[in-house]
Design a protein around this nucleic acid. Sequence first.
DNA 1: ATGCCATACGTTATATCATAACACAATCCA
DNA 2: TGGATTGTGTTATGATATAACGTATGGCAT
Lengths: 131, 131
Amino acid sequence: MAQDLKLTKNQSLVFDKLSAAPGPLSAYDLLDQLRDQGLKAPLQIYRALEKLQEIDLVHRLESMNSFVACAQPNCHAKTGLVAFAICEKCGVVSEFSDEVVQTRLAAWADERSFTTTKTSLEIRGLCQGCG
Amino acid sequence: MAQDLKLTKNQSLVFDKLSAAPGPLSAYDLLDQLRDQGLKAPLQIYRALEKLQEIDLVHRLESMNSFVACAQPNCHAKTGLVAFAICEKCGVVSEFSDEVVQTRLAAWADERSFTTTKTSLEIRGLCQGCG
DNA sequence: ATGCCATACGTTATATCATAACACAATCCA
DNA sequence: TGGATTGTGTTATGATATAACGTATGGCAT
């Protein structure tokens, strides 16, 4: 509910749902949960998600086709690297960032004149509680 | 065509196609290309891919729902970390591995008693030729 | 305010990716 | 040789994502 200032109605609905959720949600999970508020079609969700990702309020988890609210808005998205640890049992996602990894990958890219636009780093496994 | 020794017919067909391809292929790309050889249903492809991934001959690119043959079979899959740089223009995928990144992620996990089963690391952008 | 432009919205249809469930065949190996 | 495991073929269905179209809304320069 925080910085909804610039957000449109659909974007706010989607962001608020994601923020309140205990774990990642798929686009269709979101759609199901937002039918009450008048959303009816997948595109309404996907468009909101697209915008939210652009402004780094939401991240997409590539390995599970789902989405999470950013844990620290305006924080480490700027660093260019956001990483996730995903518990395959309880579904909890931990977002983190690591300078060393980031630097290392930047060096790899630089050596090869590779221009990075987006990096996704996802660790799957079992969290402390579930392991 | 290399170590097909243990592979079944479908697995070989899929692996050979992927090995010969200049870039990643989706399951349905593979299906289209293998209809001549008698494959008819998506499941035949997915099952072969599943097995090939288990034995580390094939990797899945999470960020694009497609698959590549492993560049160095029996090599850095063992290290527990395989990374990919994907050119969004020409589609070329570079597979690499990095000890430092791997160590760093292992440390992160260890500190939190997170048991890693699989890590995916994908860098998207433009390769030297396309940048 | 008026007009323009960019962005967002709503809707229908369709494309793309992936698995469930079931029956049968091949292979391993005790 | 027979039981277990793994692979196969097939049909059906589920899940994820985008194309294409027209309308509406909001910022902002004139």
